[in-house]
Design a protein around this nucleic acid. Structure first.
Lengths: 129, 129
DNA sequence: TCTTGACTTAAAGTTAACTTCAAGTTGTAT
DNA sequence: ATACAACTTGAAGTTAACTTTAAGTCAAGA
C-alpha cells in the first residue's frame, strides 16, 4: 500500500504519516528499490492504532516507547502492560473531567434558556401595552 | 485578593494568571495605586470557571470570546448560549473517543495479562522438568 | 520524449498554551 | 535603613504536534 492510499484509508495527511515514521512510531515501513514506501498490513494496523490513541490524546513519546518495546519482544510484556495501565488511568481522569464540564455546561445552557425565555416574555408584554 | 493567594487557592501559577489576563480572559481585575492586582470575588469566580473549562480543553480563544460577550450584556445571550452548546458537543465527541480508547485499552491489558500468565506457566513447567 | 502527478528528503515555519527571563518596584519585618 | 520576598512589565524561550517549503526523483499516459 502506498502512502497516499494509507492516507485516504485512515484520513491522515501523508505529511503526518511521514512525521510519525520519523518520530519512531512506524519503524518497519519498507521502501521499494526507488525509495517509495510500501505499507504492509501490519504497518496499517499500527497506523490505525496510532490514530485511535492519538485521538484520545496519548503523546507521541508514549506511543514511541510502547512500539519500541513491542519490537523488542516478549521480555517487555510487563513493561508494555504497565504503560497501557498508566495511560488508561490518565484517560479515565480526563474523561471524568470532561464529563463534569459537560454537566456544568448543561446547567449553564439551561439557565440561558430560562433567562432568554424571561426576556422574550418581557418583550411581549411591552408590545401589548 | 492578591495574585499569589488566587494562585494558591486555585492551584494555577501566577504567570498563568497574568497570561490569562493578558489574553483577555480576565478583563476586570483591578489594581491598587501601586499597580498591584486585587482580585474581586467575581474575578475569582471567573478564574474557577476558566480552570474548569481549560481542564476540559476548551481553547483560550473560545473562552476569550465568551467572556467578551458576557461583558457586553444581555444582547449577547443567545450567542453565548450557542458557544456553550457548540463546545458541549465537542466535549461529548471527545469524551466518547476517550471512552472507546479506554475500552480498547481494557481489552489489550486483559490480553497482556493472559499472555503473561501463559508465559509464567511455561517457565514453571520448564523449572519442574 | 515530455508532461504531470505522486513520491522523496531535510529543514524551516506554525499554533497553542504556557513558562522563563531581565530588570525594575513595592511592602513588610528586623 | 536595609534586606528580602512578592509584586510589576515586556519580551523571549519552550514544547508538542504537526504543516509547509524547497528542491528534487520517479512512473505512467499522450
Amino acid at each position: 500500500m502506498k502512502i497516499s492510499e494509507v492516507s485516504k484509508k485512515y484520513d491522515i495527511p501523508v505529511d503526518t504519516l511521514r512525521y510519525y515514521e520519523k518520530a519512531g512510531l512506524l519503524p518497519n515501513v519498507k521502501k521499494n528499490s526507488s525509495g517509495i514506501r510500501d505499507y504492509s498490513e501490519t504497518d496499517c494496523n499500527w497506523v490505525e492504532f496510532i490514530k485511535c490513541m492519538r485521538g484520545a490524546g496519548l503523546p507521541i513519546e508514549v506511543l514511541k516507547k510502547y512500539i519500541k518495546l513491542f519490537y523488542e519482544g516478549d521480555s517487555t510484556l510487563t513493561e508494555r502492560k504497565q504503560i497501557l495501565i498508566d495511560e488508561r488511568q490518565k484517560l479515565i481522569l480526563k474523561r471524568d473531567a470532561i464529563q463534569s464540564t459537560i454537566e456544568r455546561l448543561n446547567y449553564k445552557i439551561n439557565s440561558y434558556e430560562e433567562t432568554i425565555a424571561v426576556r422574550e416574555k418581557e418583550l411581549l408584554r411591552q408590545d401589548k401595552s
